[in-house]
Computed example of a mutant assay.
Amino acid sequence: MTNATMAAMNNDLSALDAARLLGVSLPTLYSYVSRGLLASVSNGESRRKRYPQEDVLRLAARKYDAKRGGQTAVAAMHWGLPVLETQISHILDGRLLYRGCDARVLAQHVTLETAASLLWDDGASDYFQQDAPAQPPGLANTPDAPPLARAMLAMAMLTTADIPHSLQSGPALMRVLAAALLQTAPSALPLHQQLAQAWQADAQQSELLRATLVLLADHELNASTFAVRCVASTGASLPMALSAGLAALSGDKHGGGSAAARCMLTAALAAPDARTAIATFYTAIAPEFAGFGHPLYPHGDPQLGAILAACTMASDLLAVKPNADLALAAMELAFGWPDGAGMTMFALARSAGWIAHAAEQTASGALIRPRARYIGRHQHG
């Protein structure tokens, strides 16, 4: 027996263990297989079938969700049960995977456009061959609006009746979004190069931008992605679904965390001993502060090593389990990029995932409408 076969078997369950985990009898387990709800595999040396542990756990979660419908959304808000099935991305053993591909490996060599094509349809098509879209009318007249506000305005402008359908395609939306965030004309240049030009980044920083955008392209069912899927499930247009994602991203507990992290780093770097100051921040407020830790990465976010390695304060940060917020803030300060550059990178990168999730939700035809569990007082008499 090969090592690969043994490793695969270690993740498979016997019929008895699978039935016990599902809380069903053996005949019911076998009926699940015959109905296509569960796969069974042969171990190669016995006629006895085994059952992939991940498939069994997924089916068990679905059964539990069906029984506890009112509890599902509540649990999900506290990093509990999954509430939607997806083929787009997932986090497994501290690794972020895009359709089964490790995001860290992808970030070593691909662009955001390539990552978007992978997220949208497993890389079957290169969607970014088309020319740059036209600028939405009126967008150039908002010079004083913050980048995220301009981005939301651009999405709203793309929902009017006289806007051609081609402007509502994924590539066009991402390019319009980049133009709105950077206050430039839409361009067919690679998106990381558009950021590099706007911020006068050198070649090394441009490569770092490319990798960062890939790493931030999707992150399973985060708050902004869930908002996008909810809006898409109603039949709303793709620009309106992206507007929901941008709105959710703006909050301090999501994309706005990089601004708070920048303030913390600025204060720490002004202290006599930056390393001690950062450690003090981490010890005092890490559970609440956006820059430290992540419930899905208890041992630290493994995606960020390459990002922080290029920053002068990297050695001070890697010891405190930084997350994306802190990494984006560190890049802003280390390279002299504009205040809010982190949010711009986050919004542009994550739009790739939002488009993928909106399409998947629309294709399912399902309306996202969880039940509420009422806990208020009841009127008597």
Rank of each mutant, 00 (worst) to 15 (best):
111 T>P: 05
182 L>K: 01
257 G>T: 12
151 A>S: 06
344 T>V: 06
377 R>S: 15
150 R>K: 06
234 T>E: 09
252 D>N: 06
342 G>W: 12
305 G>P: 06
340 G>E: 04
253 K>G: 00
126 D>K: 01
153 L>A: 09
39 A>K: 15
129 Q>W: 11
172 A>M: 00
299 H>R: 15
36 G>E: 04
238 L>H: 02
288 E>V: 14
49 K>R: 12
12 D>E: 10
300 G>F: 01
1 M>W: 13
361 Q>I: 05
60 A>H: 14
294 H>F: 10
330 A>W: 09
304 L>G: 04
287 P>V: 07
140 A>P: 00
287 P>T: 06
250 S>L: 02
92 L>V: 13
198 A>G: 00
211 A>F: 03
26 L>M: 07
200 Q>E: 01
227 A>I: 02
29 L>V: 14
102 D>E: 14
357 H>Y: 11
185 A>M: 00
146 P>T: 10
300 G>D: 03
114 T>W: 07
40 S>R: 15
14 S>A: 12
250 S>K: 05
156 A>G: 08
290 A>F: 13
212 T>W: 01
135 Q>F: 00
328 L>C: 03
107 A>S: 15
124 A>G: 05
265 L>T: 04
3 N>Y: 14
250 S>R: 06
345 M>K: 00
96 L>D: 04
30 Y>P: 09
192 H>E: 01
171 P>F: 03
12 D>C: 13
91 I>C: 07
206 S>A: 05
332 E>Y: 00
191 L>F: 00
363 A>L: 06
53 Q>N: 12
273 D>W: 03
140 A>W: 00
55 D>I: 15
310 A>G: 01
194 Q>V: 03
86 T>Y: 00
302 P>V: 05
124 A>Y: 05
7 A>D: 15
18 A>L: 06
100 G>F: 06
264 M>G: 07
36 G>N: 03
171 P>L: 03
25 S>E: 08
326 L>M: 13
118 L>V: 11
369 R>P: 03
70 G>E: 13
260 A>Q: 10
280 T>H: 12
75 A>W: 15
301 D>N: 09
125 S>D: 14
297 Y>K: 07
292 F>Y: 11
224 S>W: 01
242 L>W: 14
235 G>T: 03
108 Q>L: 13
126 D>N: 11
323 N>Q: 11
30 Y>G: 08
85 E>I: 04
43 N>V: 11
358 A>Q: 07
115 A>R: 10
345 M>E: 03
212 T>Q: 01
152 M>E: 07
37 L>Q: 12
215 L>P: 07
148 L>H: 11
44 G>R: 03
